[in-house]
Design a protein around this nucleic acid. Structure first.
Length: 452
DNA sequence: TTTTGAGTTGTTCGA
DNA sequence: GTCGAACAACTCAAA
């Protein structure tokens, strides 16, 4: 008697450990793990994230004992065809809550059910699946602090344990799809960090050992290695936040509390996006602000040539490494929205094109927060000063000198003020493209006008 | 339903 | 140099 077969369709859960959908599929029968290189998603990722995905797919194939089936094409075509091909009676996934992914899944599910194949969702990329944290009247939250309380009260399961004796069944892969993966890896413009679960767990272990204690203090310092660097792993589910939360248990102190809160921010923004799918591309709270069209200033911002050292350092770090420190994401976002008066989605798109961690919800809502259109009913007057922010969070100028070689000759904090140094522009650093004080007043004026 | 209190991340100015 | 106040009004959460 042949055992039933289940497809395990992997998406943002590129791991073997702590995988509830894998456990559910294995409970059904033999498991065919599959990843689909879907142009609707793959082509949109940008070369850095495509390269990172490719590296993790290679690692994933090893983690699944070489049985990972890779196919190219639109999921709505590939998954039902593969299910029929291998005689699968169930397709198992982790729930996808991002708008495009959820729409894709609905279409795939419909096609599968028409073919008599069951669709089974187990788990999600979050400790608490978006939509589950609600108040007494069943509504979601739009303010972080109450969400955090309710999210903690809701709680989450412990890590999933893989059952003994999982049997993987082979399905013919698509060599051409693997060629695409290798091409993506070759075309990746940055040096990727080590990919795969083992490397990710090593990063996490290192952070727990030496970073967590001072996390609260160091997390805002782009000149220090004070963050966990796990956002790329969380992006594709190489690690699950549930794993991290379980490991955090027993750690006390401000660092652990803060790290937990940062994980909660990721869950909060996923929850908000789930309830307001349009918030990826539209103001959550439309203010009716006047915006300027992206022009030469926008291009200078993208290239890190605004003449404001910490802004340029951040934008160049992004281009060079596919990552930017969170504090600097806020500073550069504030500069684009408040100093250049450009609508946040233009900046969000640029970030998504280059970030290795490019998380849709966190990116869009981080930008909305800065722009004043997001979940926080933020005071309109919260305009970052790019100079004082640089001096405050990069006090010795090390971050600026690292990413802006034209300023490498300036000592200490003077790197933040080349206009005050006699030789500040000796190596071709551009002059400031705007006057911050003027643009701050202009931004406040636009907010005032919008309020009416 | 009404009311009350609170809201990640800031800057400037003047004492 | 340090410190507190001012910068508005609104939305959201919860009693």
């Amino acid at each position: 008697m042949t055992r039933p077969t289940a497809l395990l369709w992997l998406r943002r859960d590129l791991r073997r450990a702590d995988h509830p959908a894998l456990a559910a599929a294995a409970a059904h029968g033999a498991v065919v793990p599959v990843f689909v290189l879907d142009p609707d998603f793959f082509d949109d990722a940008g070369p850095v994230r495509r390269g990172w995905l490719a590296a993790n797919l290679r690692a994933l194939a090893d983690a699944y004992d070489g049985r990972l089936c890779l196919r190219a094409g639109r999921a709505v075509d590939v998954i039902p065809a593969l299910a029929v091909e291998v005689g699968a009676t169930e397709v198992h996934v982790s729930t996808e809550t991002e708008p495009a992914g959820a729409a894709r899944d609905a279409a795939v599910r419909t096609a599968l059910e028409a073919a008599g194949v069951h669709w089974v969702e187990t788990g999600s990329p979050y400790a608490v699946t978006p939509g589950r944290v609600v108040n007494r009247t069943g509504d979601g939250y739009r303010v972080f602090t109450p969400f955090l309380r309710a999210w903690r009260d809701h709680g989450w399961r412990g890590p999933a344990v893989e059952p003994d004796g999982v049997r993987f069944a082979a399905a013919a892969g698509d060599d051409h799809a693997w060629d695409t993966v290798d091409a993506a890896l070759a075309a990746c413009p940055i040096a990727l960090p080590p990919a795969g679960e083992d490397a990710a767990r090593e990063r996490w272990a290192r952070f727990l050992e030496s970073g967590l204690r001072d996390y609260d203090e160091h997390r805002d310092r782009p000149d220090l290695a004070g963050t966990s660097q796990l956002s790329p792993d969380l992006k594709f589910g190489v690690l699950h936040p549930r794993t991290l939360l379980a490991d955090l248990h027993g750690h006390t102190g401000l660092g652990a509390e803060r790290y937990l809160a940062e994980l909660a921010w990721r869950e909060f923004y996923a929850d908000v996006l789930h309830r307001f799918p349009d918030s990826l591309v539209a103001d959550l709270h439309p203010l009716g602000l006047d915006y300027d069209e992206p022009d030469a200033g926008f291009t200078a911002w993208q290239r890190g040539r605004t003449g404001f050292p910490v802004v340029d350092a951040g934008m160049r770090q992004l281009l060079a490494t596919g990552w930017m420190h969170n504090r600097v994401r806020m500073i550069t976002a504030s500069f684009l929205t408040k100093d250049l008066h450009v609508w946040w989605p233009h900046g969000a798109r640029h970030f998504l094109d280059h970030l290795i961690d490019g998380d849709l919800a966190s990116n869009a809502h981080g930008w909305q927060w800065t722009a004043g259109t997001g979940t926080d009913a933020a005071p309109y007057f919260r305009v970052f000063n790019p100079i004082s922010q640089g001096e405050k969070f990069d006090p010795a100028g090390n971050y600026v000198r690292r990413w802006v070689p034209e300023l490498a000759h300036l000592a200490g904090a003077s790197a933040h003020r080349p206009w005050d140094a006699p030789d500040g522009y000796a190596h071709g650093y551009p002059q400031r493209i705007v006057d911050h004080a003027t643009e701050r007043v202009e931004a406040l004026e636009r907010y005032r006008r919008a309020r009416g």
